[in-house]
Amino acid sequence: MTTDETQKSWADEVEDNDNLKTVVEYKVKDGKKYKITKKVRTVEKTTKVPKGVEERRKWKKFGLATGEKLNGDVQITCERGEDIFFEKTKGTISLVNVQNEENLRLERFKTQLFTAASVLAEIPGIKGETSGKAYRPPANRSEVSSPAPTDEPKKSTYVPPSARNAAGTTSTNMHDRDQSHTVRVSNLSDMITEQDLRNVFGKVGLLERVFLVTDRETRISKGFAFITYSTRAEAEKAIEKLNHLKWDHLILSVEWAKN
C-alpha cells in the first residue's frame, strides 16, 4: 500500500487495538521517495502439547540432519506441496443425503408414474425397501431365461485397447446383440449411476443389460444409456411409462435404440 503523507487512507480509520501493528518504511523508486505504511495484525494461537513433545522439540539434530555428512547425491528437502483435495466419490458425500435422495426419488416415482393401483401392485419393495430389488417376473413367465450377468468375469487373455470398454473388460460385440429389445435413454444427469438406472428401469420389466455410457478417462457419465429388456413388450412399456419422466432437473427421453 503506497500512501502520501498528506493524504489519509481509509484504512487508517480502522480502530487500533492491541493486535494491530503499524510498520512504516521508506523506499526510493524511479527517483521518488515513497512512504509505505503497513498494518499488520498479529494473531496469537496457543496449542497445548504433552511435556514429552515439548522436550523432544529441543532435541539436538544428529546424523544427516547436522549437515556434516551430506554428500552430493543426498538432498534433504521438506516442501509444502501444492493444495490437494480429498476427492469425494460421487453420490457418497454423506450417508444421510444418499438415503434422502433415494427416498425422494422413490417419492417422485410413486407420484408421477404409478398412480394406477394395478401397476403399484406389481412392484415389490415400493414401500420400505428402496434399493437392490429388481422386478421379478410373475410365475407364469418362468420360462423367461434369467438375466445375463452384466459383470463378465475378467479373462486373462490379451484384449486390444480398442475392444475394451470403460471397465476394462471385453465388451461383447455390438453387432451380435439383439437390438430389438433395447431402449436408448438420453438426457440423464451425470450424477445418475448404473445402479440408479437399474432401480428405476428394473421396475418396469426384467432387465437383461444396463449400459451407462461413460467417458473412458474420467468415468463421468455422458448422459445416455442403453437398457436391454428380456422382451420387446417390456421395452415398449418402458418407453411408454418412462419417456418424459422428470428425473433430477432433466426430462428423460426414452426411445428405441437405433441400429
Binding site: 538432498q75 516442501e79 509444502r80 506441496g81
Partner: peptide, 25 residues
C-alpha cells in the same frame, strides 16, 4: 490440504511409523 513432502531418501520408502504422541515420524 497442503501436504508436507519429506524427501531425503533416494530409494523407495518401505515403512512409516508415528511415535505415540504423533510429534515424530
Amino acid at each position: 490440504m497442503k501436504p508436507f513432502l519429506l524427501h531425503a531418501h533416494t530409494k523407495p520408502i518401505s515403512w512409516i511409523k508415528f511415535n505415540r504422541e504423533g510429534d515424530l515420524i
